[in-house]
Simulated scan of single mutants.
Amino acid sequence: MARAPVEQAAGAPMDVAVHAGYNDASRSWDGELTLARALGPIRLFGIGRTFSAFRAGTGRSAAGGGFTLRLNQYVALAGDAVTLVDRRANEDVAWSAGVQLGIPYTPHTLAVTVSNANTTTLEGASLGVPQGRRWGFEYTIPISLGGHFGGRRPENGSAPAMGLALQAGGSIGAEVHLTNQLRFVPDTVRIKVGQSVLWINGSAFIHTVTADARLAQRVGDGRVPAGATPFSSGDLSPGMVFEHVFHVPGEYRYFCIPHEASGMRGTIIVE
């Protein structure tokens, strides 16, 4: 089992995670305590492990630490090292290092790692293999059941976490939510001249709100009424919002640039 009873994001000074399980091969009850704290772009963590019968032998313990350094929105470096507290002359420190890559416009990540550990169990990750290096990669595909099966959406009028291009003047005539299903919800809204629309990205994806036919792949997308100026939000990361005031009546057809082919389109009717 694993849990995080204390979280820095909730106001605590650090994250605390507990991991425990039974290693059937060693017939050992194993446990791990992790303490972590983010300091700007770097996250530092310390690890303590205990084993009731390490490799089917006596009880032992291990300690270590590591870091994750975020270089930018899509690239991070990570590394860690763990040693048995009573490490013997023929036992090596276990270590690993890697680069983590975020896939633009998706919640997916790709990690490429190298390690001298033999397995990924708590015991295996606490003992290095002499002269051994193993390379590997991990591609993550997060699945949000709440997002795909009608999870709770932000209520109308709720305050978004981050803003982009919020405009003064005029009232908000409608709110549109950008979803994990690659849809604008609702996909059609009616407002009056001088009112604005507020788009809220509550999904795990980067989206755009684009009403500019020059940026569209499909004929008809991005169309605006005569006399109106085309617009685009630019990239909206998860949690960001975008607001646009409409001064010219007519029908505006907009779309999401990275997900236009998936049918992520919407319509604003200004009366």
Rank of each mutant, 00 (worst) to 15 (best):
Y254T: 03
F246Q: 06
G234K: 10
Y252H: 10
P249Y: 03
D235T: 06
H247I: 14
E260V: 06
C256N: 06
A261N: 12
V245R: 15
A261H: 13
L236C: 07
Y252L: 08
P258Y: 09
R253Y: 14
D235H: 07
C256G: 05
E251V: 12
V245W: 06
F246G: 04
Y254C: 08
P258K: 09
C256D: 01
G239E: 05
E260D: 13
P238S: 05
S232D: 03
I257A: 06
C256M: 10
E251W: 10
A261P: 01
A261C: 06
G234V: 08
I257E: 02
D235G: 08
S233F: 01
V248G: 13
F242H: 05
S232P: 08
F255V: 07
H244L: 02
E243N: 15
M240L: 12
Y252A: 03
Y254W: 04
V245L: 11
S237I: 12
P238E: 01
V248W: 09
E243S: 02
E251G: 10
P238K: 06
Y252N: 05
S232Q: 09
P258F: 09
E243A: 09
L236G: 04
V248C: 11
Y252K: 07
E260N: 07
P238G: 01
L236N: 03
P238M: 06
F242P: 00
V245Q: 11
E243L: 08
P238W: 02
S233Y: 02
F255R: 00
F242K: 01
Y254M: 09
H247E: 15
S237K: 15
M240I: 13
E260P: 03
H247M: 12
I257N: 03
C256Y: 02
P238F: 00
H244E: 12
V248P: 11
C256P: 06
S233K: 03
F246A: 00
F246T: 07
P249V: 04
V241E: 08
F246W: 00
S232C: 08
G250P: 12
H247N: 15
M240V: 14
H244A: 06
D235V: 10
S237H: 13
F255T: 00
H259K: 00
H244Q: 11
E251I: 14
G250L: 02
A261D: 08
E260C: 10
E243T: 11
P249L: 00
A261G: 10
I257T: 13
R253C: 13
E251M: 13
H247D: 14
F255Q: 01
G234E: 04
S232Y: 02
Y252Q: 03
S233C: 07
C256T: 05
R253M: 11
V248L: 03
R253H: 10
C256I: 08
V241F: 02
H247L: 14
F255N: 01
Y252D: 02
S232N: 15
D235K: 11
G234D: 00
S232K: 01
H247T: 15
E243K: 14
F242M: 10
R253F: 14
E243D: 09
F242L: 13
P238I: 04
G239K: 09
E251D: 11
S237Q: 15
M240H: 09
H259G: 01
S237T: 13
E260L: 07
D235E: 14
M240C: 14
E243H: 04
S232T: 13
V241G: 10
V248M: 08
Y254D: 08
I257W: 00
S237A: 15
P258H: 00
R253A: 12
Y254G: 06
H247Y: 07
M240W: 11
R253V: 13
S233H: 05
A261I: 11
C256E: 06
